[in-house]
Design a protein around this nucleic acid. Structure first.
Lengths: 211, 211
DNA sequence: CCTGGAGTTAATCAATCGATTAAACTATTC
DNA sequence: GAATAGTTTAATCGATTGATTAACTCCAGG
């Protein structure tokens, strides 16, 4: 085993851990399985990450943290609500369909280990000015109000708006077992379902917001 | 310890298991914790349920299976789409806000142990005529088509319609940690958020469907 | 060449965990 | 009271698990 001079071993462990944690969750993941997936000795997991919990936090930061820049880019921009909706829907569906197990994993971590999000939020707060995050909802709210005033949109609270948007993008992925088992949707059908969704969801949302 | 002649011990174990599984997930739940929660000796879990996995399946059946009758009632009825939307939103939010951890638990189980749903679906298929379940989507689709034809509604695929409806009801509960940690929503604020949502969500959905 | 530090390994540890066992207890029937 | 079946208990088991340990390898610097 060549020495890790460029962080390659650490990166291999992190990638393997991502695979295993996403598939089994934190409690269901096994360090030996991660070690095998990474092709290293189990002791290395502790050498590089100290404990299972720290490794799990690193994976969560890796997976969930990746979404933050693109989300901030969409909602921090000066584009219109319509554009934001369309960009977000397309971005989300396109990105997540490449890793369709991610939403289920994130929901599970949020549910069973919410401290992961607390830690991630603290970290992001360290790298982004607080004003960016705290101004998020009020800025969106101001944009909505402006549209309402000129009669272009119905009134909706910014948090409700966001929850609606994210819900409609996320849910097909977490509901996939239901679609498969109850409605008999195979992979090809799910893919068509997503294509259809990608095409029609922006209209659904924007129409809902029409006065 | 009085003898279990009326299923009381079994019921106590099941209730305790629900509490622990919902909180920690299947992999994270501990049999000894369930035994303590139920106030019985750990061996009883095996006596009554044979294994952890069977107990977990029993809990899933209990929790998820409870939703089925009311969902079938709403969507099997002859009421209009508008009424169905309103009934479902109110029913879902009212019921789930009493046990707000349930959606997170169900999503996690669907993700990590989809065979639970397979088993539950097989069981339901045994107690409901297959025609009820299989006709579900086509009937809804026919109802939608009828509304489209008379110009009362935009066209939408029944599965997309259902996913939208369920997504918008479920998601606030699974996103609760995000609302709390990122947007600083405390319990009172979350409750107000749900009240607002209960009031406005049917309109959001029905407006989205307006031609 | 030697030393120290970083990286890696196989083996082992100690604790935990789901599950089993044997015995005791309880209730019912004859 | 005895027998039987069902229920319950404390103790124990055997396997798994996250973590530790000691030894080894490699590299750079003195």
């Amino acid at each position: 085993m060549s020495n890790d001079r460029d962080g390659e071993t650490e990166e291999r462990i992190l990638k393997a851990a991502r695979t295993v944690f996403v598939r089994h969750g934190t409690a269901g993941a096994r360090m030996q399985e991660i070690a095998e997936e990474a092709g290293v000795n189990q002791a290395l997991l502790h050498y590089y990450f100290r404990s299972k919990d720290r490794l799990a936090q690193a994976v969560f930061r890796d997976v969930a943290g990746r979404m933050v820049p693109s989300i901030v880019a969409v909602f921090g921009s000066e584009s219109s609500i319509e554009q934001k909706v369309e960009q977000f829907v397309h971005l989300y569906i396109d990105v997540v369909r490449q890793s369709p197990f991610i939403p289920g994993y994130i929901v599970a971590e949020l549910h069973f280990n919410p401290e992961r999000l607390t830690a991630l939020a603290a970290e992001i707060a360290g790298t982004h000015p607080a004003s960016v995050m705290q101004a998020f909802l009020p800025r969106l709210g101001a944009q909505i109000d402006e549209q309402v005033k000129i009669g272009a949109m119905r009134s909706i609270a910014p948090d409700q708006f966001l929850v609606n948007l994210v819900a409609l993008c996320v849910f097909p992925f977490v509901a996939r077992p239901v679609l498969r088992i109850v409605f008999g949707q195979d992979d090809a059908a799910f893919s068509r379902f997503l294509d259809e969704r990608r095409r029609e969801l922006p209209d659904f949302i924007l129409n809902a917001l029409r006065p």
